[in-house]
Design a protein around this nucleic acid. Structure first.
Length: 454
RNA sequence: GUACCCAUAGCUCAGCAGGUUAGAGCAUCAGAUUGUGGUUCUGAGGGCCGUGGGUUCGAACCCCAUUGGGUACCCCA
């Protein structure tokens, strides 16, 4: 059979894995610097845990796992009934009761509720694991991809928001990517919707204005009109969308226009507090208020974030925000959380395009011991142990193949040194070390060889 | 869920308006070089041209279906 991969999934070559680990290490390190602790949850969850948490669209994109034992003759009637239900669009435990993790936030909420007695709040965790979505794959979109999330739960303090902004700032600075960190607040959006008389269609409203940079002012206006917005309200929104100015003047404008919106005022105050906290720290990247920023997930209730770069044409490199009642659906009310996510795959693409990876195709292995077979093989194998004892990564070619083939192997793996232990070397108790880049070869003692290579 | 594009060697592709044994580069293997690589040269292996049907004297090429891949929209990271 011809081997193939399910669409939307990828293999990662040794070089790709090393590059991905480079990114992950920076993100992990940054999270840990701010007191976030690692958490891992299973690849699969009970379907109940996930359904209904991501909206109707999201539910459709959850990968469901078929139950085992459906072919059991005793359960045939039940299975057929259940399948009929599935065909009419209903999920039923008779066919599937487990699903692949769709994101890391809901499993995190589930974990918090299950372990509430053991956890110390505020609980700050980070999680770097793959998630799966039954989406149509396309550029920059996969069916299996990694999320790198950090969330703090059980604290309403805006200090968390401030630190999460710092986390973004430091992580991207460490990678050498210039970004803009965009901030908005769902309460401000609610306030705008309120003064425009669109509170009842809040979701439509946010979805439309979120597309500003994609479809332009006319496109947004058309979409809002289609949703039944009034002429006066449309003009109000347009005046917001067209406004340009620094953060403080945006806040001033909002303050004025949303003077009569209680919720809008709350949102403005939150953003103002966030900025006040960040006044005392220096950021590498600009933090900008963007009132068109809406974020798709409807569970956000406070500040929301998005990270963008202007250096590469690509979607957002991360996002996040505050959700007041994430654990409520699992029966634990009143826990507020806030978190951010890094888009590993897109970051990879950006670093690749900007050539910002400090690691190349060079091997981890420093030396290849040529295998001459027989007793000579034994001697090379023994000598090799001394290198590893000194923490010098080295390997011996496992077969007594032609020298050319062994050298080719070293070249292909970009191993910088080749060590010869042949008759003459054994006799003198020394080895020959060849630098594969310059071609120079030296007859040295084993100690000298290790100094040279390590 | 909707729309469009693509499918030929392990990989990237070529294949003139349907016409004899379907080609190239890279990769692989062997030799020039029996303990010294990256360059070069020579040679070899490798394809029912995604699958099934149709049109035709004749199909990699045209038509239909099917499967797989890609891209855009919806949505999203």
């Amino acid at each position: 059979m011809k081997p193939s991969l399910p669409s939307g999934t990828r293999d990662f070559s040794p070089l790709e894995v090393r590059k991905r680990q480079y990114i992950i290490n920076i993100i992990r390190h940054t999270f840990e610097q701010f007191g976030y602790e690692p958490l891992e949850t299973p690849a699969m969850e009970n379907l109940d845990t996930l359904m209904g948490k991501y909206g109707d669209e999201g539910d459709k994109l959850i990968f469901k796992i078929l139950n085992n034992g459906l072919d059991n003759p005793d359960k045939r009637t039940k299975a057929v009934e259940a399948f009929d239900q599935v065909l009419s669009g209903k999920n039923t435990k008779g066919i599937t009761e487990r699903a692949l993790r769709y994101d890391l936030t809901i499993p995190f909420a589930r974990y918090v509720v299950m372990n509430q007695g053991k956890l110390t709040f505020p609980f700050k965790r980070y999680q770097i694991q793959p998630v799966w979505r039954a989406d149509r794959p396309q550029k920059g979109r996969y069916r299996e991809f990694y999320q790198c999330d950090a969330d703090a739960i059980g604290t309403t303090s805006l200090l968390n928001e401030a630190e999460l902004v710092q986390i973004y700032d430091r992580a991207y600075a460490s990678m050498g990517v210039k970004v803009r960190i965009l901030v908005n607040n769902r309460k401000i959006l609610a306030g705008i919707a309120e003064v425009c008389g669109m509170s009842d269609q809040f979701t439509d409203f946010t979805v439309a204005i979120d597309k500003l940079d994609k479809i332009g002012l006319d496109g947004v206006s058309a979409e809002l009109t289609a949703k039944g917005i009034g002429e006066a309200a449309l003009q109000t929104i347009q005046s917001f969308l067209q406004f340009e100015g620094d953060n403080q003047s945006v806040l001033a404008l909002l303050n004025e226009k949303l003077a009569n919106s209680e919720i809008g005022q709350k949102g403005i105050a939150e953003v103002q507090t966030l900025f006040n906290y960040l006044n005392s720290v220096s950021l590498n990247n600009p933090l900008q208020i963007d009132i068109t920023l809406a974020r798709g997930l409807n569970y956000y209730t406070g500040c929301i974030f998005e990270v963008k770069t202007d250096e590469v044409k690509i979607g957002s490199l991360g996002g996040g925000g505050r959700y007041d009642d994430l654990t409520g659906t699992f029966g634990l009310k009143g826990l507020s959380g806030v978190g951010v996510s890094f888009g590993l795959d897109r970051i990879y693409d950006v670093l690749e395009e900007l050539q910002l990876f400090p690691i190349g195709a060079d091997s981890m292995v420093k030396a290849l011991f040529i295998n001459f077979g027989g007793d000579l093989e034994q001697y090379a194998f023994k000598t090799l142990q001394a290198f590893r004892a000194k923490n010098i990564p080295a390997e011996i070619y496992p077969d007594a193949a032609k020298i050319k083939k062994q050298m080719d192997y070293a070249n292909n793996k970009q191993i910088p040194f080749v060590v010869f232990c042949g008759e003459t070397e054994i006799a003198s108790g020394r080895v020959s070390v060849k630098n594969m880049e310059t071609g120079e070869q030296h007859d040295v003692s084993i100690e000298e060889a290790m100094l040279l290579i390590g």
